[in-house]
């Protein structure tokens, strides 16, 4: 028996519907960089500069864990998401869902925020008594994308990981140090990177990225 936060299942619907329980305002989701007003900045900056940065909208994030019953998890993931659990440092992608390898017994799924509950529930049903864990961590992170011809230079100023396209190629994901924070860094395609940062560090990383990309020209895009 695990506890899934049941109320998750209807909370997201209420984003667009008047909440039936509380008379207070409709619950408003705020991304970690809500205060930075990225959409206003996007309107004010030129596009097509050396680097463009966007904060992605809120997404569902689930941590999957399994060690000795990894096969059971893999089977359930395949059945629910139609993808296989990725191998070391790689990703499995289907539609808007992406499963990232984090550790030999850990993966991170991103999906539409209103799908997370169903996915967790379905996987738990399939895995039954198997030794696995699933944790909803949607609120715990901020997802940024960095694109453009100088994106890799900004990364080289920020992390000691080898981000050369021969090493960090499309589909690869690594957890590493970013400035003085940590990042789950994924190369989406050439000159296009995704950074998943712990929510409380998002403002620091946002500030850092502004400084590191200044010399290349930074444009802000709406995620």
């Amino acid at each position: 028996m695990h506890s899934i936060l049941m109320s998750e299942q209807y909370a997201h619907n209420s984003v667009t519907q008047k909440n039936e329980f509380a008379d207070s305002a409709i619950p408003m989701m705020e991304t970690a960089l809500h205060h930075a007003q990225m959409s206003k900045l996007a309107a004010r900056t030129d596009s097509g500069l050396g680097v463009s940065l966007s904060e992605l909208p809120m997404a569902g994030l689930l941590v999957f864990r399994a060690s000795k019953d990894k096969a059971a998890l893999a089977k359930a993931v395949e059945s629910v998401l139609q993808v296989s659990l990725p191998e070391t440092l790689s990703t499995s992608i289907v539609g808007d869902k992406c499963v990232r390898w984090i550790a030999p017994d850990e993966w991170l799924l991103s999906c539409a925020i209103d799908e997370a509950y169903t996915i967790e529930k379905s996987i738990r049903e399939i895995t039954g008594d198997a030794s696995i864990a699933i944790v909803n961590v949607a609120g715990g992170f901020s997802a940024l994308t960095l694109q453009g011809p100088s994106a890799v230079d900004v990364l080289r100023k920020s992390t000691a990981y080898d981000v050369h396209p021969q090493n960090l190629m499309p589909g690869k994901v690594v957890n590493t140090v970013f400035a003085k924070a940590q990042v789950c860094l994924r190369c989406v395609e050439e000159n296009h990177y995704e950074l998943i940062i712990r929510r409380s560090f998002a403002d620091y990383v946002w500030h850092w990225l502004q400084v590191a990309s200044a010399e290349y020209g930074l444009s802000i895009e709406v995620g």
């Binding site: 509380a22 207070s24 609120g139």
Partner: peptide, 16 residues
């Protein structure tokens, strides 16, 4: 509450 609702709930508490 999940962090993305934190501000909303905090403000709702103050409203009441």
């Amino acid at each position: 509450v999940p962090a993305h609702y934190g501000m909303h709930v905090w403000e709702a508490l103050f409203e009441h």
